[in-house]
């Protein structure tokens, strides 16, 4: 067995896999943030809380209704997305004419409410969620052990990211969406229902967060604080990537997850802060973000 700088390859590859999994969550969440920001000009602070909600909905479906993982993977994003649509129609839509900062403050308040409610009823200790039977176990690849569920998380999130990218960049619906991001008034003048599109976009962005939550449920314990710290890291990811490009948001998410994994091998003390350090460097060198457009 070869060794790299004194690090056994099992350790290195194990941490890289872990980084890839974290990167999958960063990618799906920052993709949702970027889509929402593009059309609504709101940074959705509640994104972490809605991710947590996705995990909780999956847990509730299983424990209250006996509905398993595979149905939850479809139902939970739909439920969270529906909840998001209600939020958008009743609350967020009142803010579009105001400074963007109010959107941040308001969604921060929503995040506090959602997290507080879940903490109140479910405590903070975390609830277990079983890995579905079909994905239990794993493969021995010779150089490392690959748990099936972790492989599934990477594949599922990559598929969802690709689907979202394809929908936005390559279809007619996506063209409307991109046009509305540039100039909503003009798109509305062509007879396209922009408010409906805004509503569905928020719903879809939030459903992505819910989907990530279901994926995360069997890996991390389901607890009310699981989204809060994650969303701050995702904000840093979004600052590094810039929100101008869908592909940029996805790539930055994966790459930073891997970088974090590498940091855990070579400089474990700094692994928690490495993304923030990268953000500082990017701000110094290219303040508008790696994929951002200067304005």
């Amino acid at each position: 067995m070869f060794e790299l700088l004194g690090i056994p390859p099992q350790v290195l590859l194990g941490q890289l896999l872990l980084g890839l999994i974290n990167g999958s969550f960063y990618a799906v969440l920052s993709l949702g943030l970027a889509v929402i920001f593009g059309l609504l000009n709101i940074i959705n602070f509640a994104h972490g809380a809605l991710y947590m909600m996705g995990a909780f909905v999956a847990w509730m479906l299983l424990n209250y209704f006996g509905i398993g993982y595979w149905w939850a993977l479809i139902l939970a994003p739909v439920i969270v997305g529906g909840f998001g649509i209600v939020l958008e129609r009743t609350i967020l839509s009142r803010l579009y004419k105001l400074d963007h900062l109010y959107g941040l403050l308001l969604t921060f308040g929503l995040a506090l409410i959602i997290q507080g409610l879940f903490r109140n009823y479910y405590g903070i200790s975390g609830l277990p969620y079983q890995i579905p039977a079909e994905l239990a176990g794993g493969y021995n690849l010779g150089f490392m052990y690959l748990p099936n569920y972790r492989a599934w998380v990477v594949i599922a999130s990559a598929a969802v990211c690709f689907g979202a990218w394809f929908l936005i960049e390559k279809t007619r619906l996506g063209a409307y969406l991109r046009a509305a991001t540039e100039n909503p008034t003009l798109v509305g003048a062509f007879g396209i229902n922009v408010p409906l599109m805004v509503m569905l976009t928020y719903g879809a962005g939030v459903a992505l967060a819910g989907f990530a939550g279901v994926l995360a449920a069997p890996i991390y314990s389901v607890n009310p604080n699981m989204g809060a710290d994650l969303i701050i890291v995702v904000f840093a990811v979004v600052v590094i990537g810039g929100m101008g490009s869908i592909l940029g948001a996805i790539l930055t998410g994966y790459v930073l997850g891997l970088v974090e994994g590498l940091a855990r091998v070579f400089f474990p003390e700094g692994s928690a802060v490495v993304i923030f350090v990268i953000m500082a460097i990017v701000l110094l060198v290219k303040p508008e973000g790696l994929f951002g457009r200067a304005n």
Partner: peptide
């Protein structure tokens, strides 16, 4: 000096992210 390189909503996110870094430092 780093945060003022971005405006508006990004400024808020940058300051939040650096504060989280200070939090991790306080923890470690």
């Amino acid at each position: 000096s780093l945060a003022i390189r971005r405006q508006g909503i990004y400024f808020a996110m940058v300051t939040l992210a650096f504060a989280q870094m200070v939090y991790f430092l306080a923890l470690q």
